[in-house]
Simulated scan of single mutants.
Amino acid sequence: MRQESIVSKYRTYLLLEKALSGNSIEAYISDVNKLLNFIHNENLDLKDITLDNLQQFIAQLYDLEISPKSVARIISGTKSFFGFLLADGYVSSDPTELLETPKLGMKLPTVLSIEEIDDMKRIIDASTREGQRNRAIIEVLYSCGLRISELTTLKFSDLFLDEGFVRVEGKGSKQRLVPISPIAIKELNYYLMERETYPIKKGSENIVFLSKRGTPISRIMVFHFIKEYAAKVGIKKNISPHTFRHSFATHMLEGGANIRAIQQMLGHEKITTTEIYTHMDREFLRQEIIEHHPRNNRVE
């Protein structure tokens, strides 16, 4: 059977049997096409592929300086493809059974210090409408650990400022209550006074954070001004709105918060997602020992 026909059937399998999204299917097909191009260039036959052939394919990916994370994804796609081929009788054995996935080192997310966050806020001109809005956005992102999508869709009906809470609608439309700090409430209240002067567009009346045109502020706009403020105060880290969420979690853990409480506030379904911050906390503790333990400050 022609490879085009096999790929077409595999696409149907991913859609109907695996119920994958369109983007996921295209990613799988793209990875399979990389494998099929290799097979074609090496004058091999799909049904005769061996483990050695696959290891040669993976070696070529590394030669092209493809990252280990991308190689791991391609290997996963290759395993899925051969599982499909075996189940449908296109091959008699699965050569991917012993194919090893590269071990990925844990990449710890970038975190801002409290001083760096304060420096960014300090250079914002709060006398302008957009300036006060941006101060409030930074403080709410950091105070509540919100995702940028959660911040841009935050509604007035989600604010319980007298009680000190914000209701957040996270992934899968799941709602959670998150405490909001007095500093964030203060910045938010200053902004809300300015917000009354915005030319609010129909349909945006209940949205908290608006653009100067009166429409919901976009992720790109928040990303842009955060990068701009970071550059102005000399922060060299590669940061984004999500950096404030990481900073929130890390500072909470360093301050002694329970990891289960942090999990709830971040809206993580699995504790394993939150546990990355325990690695960051260990690095913090290590640095504290290096800086403050007398054995690290004495030279024999």
Rank of each mutant, 00 (worst) to 15 (best):
R167T: 05
R147H: 12
A19D: 07
L108M: 06
A59D: 08
D48P: 03
Y10F: 15
F38P: 03
K212T: 09
V168H: 03
G255E: 09
T50K: 14
H246W: 07
T243H: 00
K201Q: 10
S80C: 13
H224F: 10
I66Q: 04
P95S: 06
K236W: 00
I123N: 00
H242Y: 12
E115P: 07
E196T: 01
S240P: 08
L36R: 08
R129T: 11
V32A: 12
N33S: 03
D88N: 12
I29G: 13
T152S: 05
R282S: 12
N37Y: 15
R282L: 14
Y13T: 08
I180F: 01
G267Y: 03
Q264M: 08
S240F: 01
E97I: 15
E300F: 14
R286P: 06
T110K: 15
S240A: 11
S181D: 07
S5V: 14
S143G: 04
R286L: 12
R295H: 14
R135T: 07
A257S: 14
Q60M: 08
Y10R: 11
R73K: 10
I207S: 03
Q175W: 02
E139I: 04
D158R: 00
A261N: 09
I123R: 04
L85D: 09
L192W: 02
H224Q: 14
E269F: 02
N23W: 01
I239M: 09
F244I: 09
E163D: 12
F223G: 00
R295G: 08
E275S: 14
L14P: 14
T278I: 10
K155Y: 04
S204Y: 08
K9H: 11
Q60V: 00
L99R: 08
Y90D: 11
T96P: 15
C144D: 09
L44A: 10
A126L: 01
S211L: 12
K212C: 00
R133Y: 00
I138C: 01
L54F: 09
S149Y: 02
F223M: 01
S149P: 01
K236S: 09
K174G: 06
L14W: 11
S240M: 03
D45L: 10
L54Q: 07
I289K: 06
K18M: 14
L285Q: 14
D125N: 14
Q264Y: 11
D31K: 08
D118C: 03
S30E: 11
D118G: 04
I207A: 03
R260P: 05
T12M: 13
S157R: 12
G267E: 05
N297Y: 07
P216K: 01
F165P: 08
I262S: 07
L35S: 08
R298M: 15
F38N: 03
D118K: 15
E150D: 06
S93V: 02
I25A: 13
Q175M: 10
L99Y: 05
